[in-house]
């Protein structure tokens, strides 16, 4: 990564932090006003917020450590390298697995997917990769387990994998069916 883009990224992060702090300030002010106007609600609001805060703070540092480890030990370049040249069942599993690694928010995945597309990776694998990146991330599953329980988490995970695979093939079919009249890159 060049120094310039890194600097840009830092600037963007700073801006987002300021924005988030402003939003928090507004929410806090609104909460305080509401609690002053409605003293009878104080107990419920404070105890609910406190309980959710505890549940969050017990797992968030651990989730962040895992995110940090993955960011350093599994660089994005490795993802591109592996996904660019696989296909079949192996490709399906690899696309989901690589997407599920905790490596940043969805918009980070778009340029990677674009690069893969140019390299000739299958459309279905790209869609699988993007979808796994969006909603089958390992740390997400952990937080889901914590707040919604094992049954909910597992049911949603299994259904998501099944339907995402179906979607990937539908999109590939539509894209290729549309392309048959034009120039199709068969490599």
């Amino acid at each position: 990564m060049t120094g310039n883009s890194k600097q840009k990224k830092e600037e963007k992060a700073k801006k987002e932090m300021v924005r988030d702090l402003v939003i928090f300030g507004i929410t806090l002010a609104a909460t305080l006003i509401l609690l002053m106007e409605f003293p009878d609600r104080r107990g419920a609001v404070i105890s609910t917020s406190w309980n959710f805060f505890l549940e969050m703070i017990l797992i968030l540092p651990a989730v962040m450590v895992l995110l940090g480890l993955f960011a350093v030990f599994v660089p994005k370049e490795a993802v591109v390298k592996y996904l660019g040249k696989t296909s079949g069942i192996k490709g399906i599993f690899l696309a989901i697995l690589l997407g599920a690694l905790p490596t940043g928010p969805l918009y980070v995945a778009f340029p990677i997917a674009a690069a893969l597309l140019k390299k000739g990776a299958k459309i279905s694998n790209i869609i699988l990769f993007l979808s796994a990146w969006a909603c089958i991330k390992i740390p997400q599953e952990m937080v889901e387990l914590q707040f919604l329980g094992l049954r909910f988490m597992l049911a949603r995970l299994i259904l998501t994998v099944i339907f995402v695979i179906i979607m990937a093939f539908i999109i590939e079919w539509i894209m290729e069916w549309d392309d048959t009249g034009g120039v199709k890159n068969a490599v």
Binding site: I23, T27, L28, T48, S49, F52, M56
Partner: peptide
């Protein structure tokens, strides 16, 4: 922020 919103 989210925790306050949940409380409210």
């Amino acid at each position: 922020t989210i925790i306050l919103i949940i409380g409210l």
